[in-house]
């Protein structure tokens, strides 16, 4: 189980990386932490003439904080976020999510930008960043542009970035201080990809609620009806649960395909439990 031959180039900075991507015929592929890419190469499921390693680009390792947002370079690792070596925008949600991705040995090299670029709907960041309303900054031959989370993830391995663009950083809006969140992931084996992920963020100070269902379809599903049902809800009640179930059914009906009965049960559970957690019920 060894990869096909390829060339390797280590980009020293972003322009260097963009130059490598500019020549479409060269077929270059960006590698950040390589924790998804190298397995695919090893399995010969993917093959590229050239791999451009961006993991050492200093700019992509930067992280910063402003009054209303945290900005993370694309090559910040899950492990760094887990360890609090990056600012936390969302009352601990990002640290919590990071700590639950695969295994520590993978988190030490895997990056948030790499995960977002793969756009696997069962990956934690894809779901979480959509729930947080993150913005993705891509840089290409024509300079930088910003892509809002709902426009970013188009399908597995398919984002709004073009082949000549590089995801350079992710801007995550800060929640209010008293915002709460719930994150519920169903896995059959610890550290595996989720079968279903529910991410709920409640920010009463901003009258904002967001609910995202991950892993259950090709792209994460923004559950707007469920979010509406949760907006302003002060606590978990039976009435709220009933209303949420109705709202979830409404959201699921908008999904790209009908859910099998067993999937419907699981995703409903996922969202309900994430919501309950956000309202302080474990």
């Amino acid at each position: 189980m060894k990869p096909m031959p390829f060339d390797y180039a280590r980009a020293k900075d972003v322009p260097d990386a963009l130059a490598a991507l500019a020549d479409a015929d060269a077929g270059a592929r960006v590698m950040a932490g390589g924790q998804s890419l190298v397995p695919m190469l090893n399995l010969r499921l993917a093959t590229f003439p050239r791999v451009v390693d961006i993991s050492k680009i200093a700019e992509l390792r930067e992280r910063s904080e402003s009054a209303d947002a945290v900005t993370l370079g694309a090559c910040v690792t899950h492990g760094e976020i887990e360890d609090g070596e990056a600012p936390e925008p969302a009352a601990g949600l990002m640290r919590h999510v990071a700590a639950g991705i695969a295994y520590r040995a993978v988190r030490n090299r895997g990056t948030i930008g790499g995960s977002a670029s793969l756009a696997d709907a069962s990956a934690d960041w894809v779901t979480t960043l959509l729930a947080l309303g993150a913005r993705f900054i891509g840089r290409g031959p024509d300079g930088e542009r910003e892509i809002a989370a709902p426009d970013m993830f188009l399908g597995p391995y398919f984002t709004a970035m073009t082949d000549q663009e590089l995801l350079v950083r992710i801007v995550v809006p800060k929640t209010s201080r008293d915002a709460t969140w719930g994150y519920y992931k169903v896995t059959r084996r610890s550290g595996e990809y989720g079968l279903s992920i529910g991410a709920v963020i409640l920010d009463p100070a901003r009258e904002h609620a967001s609910v995202v269902l991950g892993a259950a379809s090709r792209t994460p599903l923004a559950c707007t009806a469920a979010a509406a049902a949760l907006r302003g809800a002060p606590r978990w009640t039976e009435a709220l649960e009933t209303a949420l179930r109705t709202a979830i059914a409404e959201d699921l009906a908008r999904a790209e395909r009908p859910f099998e009965p067993h999937e419907a049960i699981m995703v409903e559970t996922t969202i309900l439990r994430a919501a309950a957690q956000a309202l302080g019920v474990s």
Partner: peptide, 29 residues
């Protein structure tokens, strides 16, 4: 496994544990 799941190849890179089966040697200059 050579795809990063089983952990038998775990080593330390710069003091942090990592899967050596899915780390390219050339990336470790």
């Amino acid at each position: 496994c050579e795809h990063g799941v089983c952990g038998a190849c775990t080593v330390l890179i710069d003091g942090k544990i990592a899967r050596s089966c899915i780390t390219l040697a050339v990336s470790l200059d």
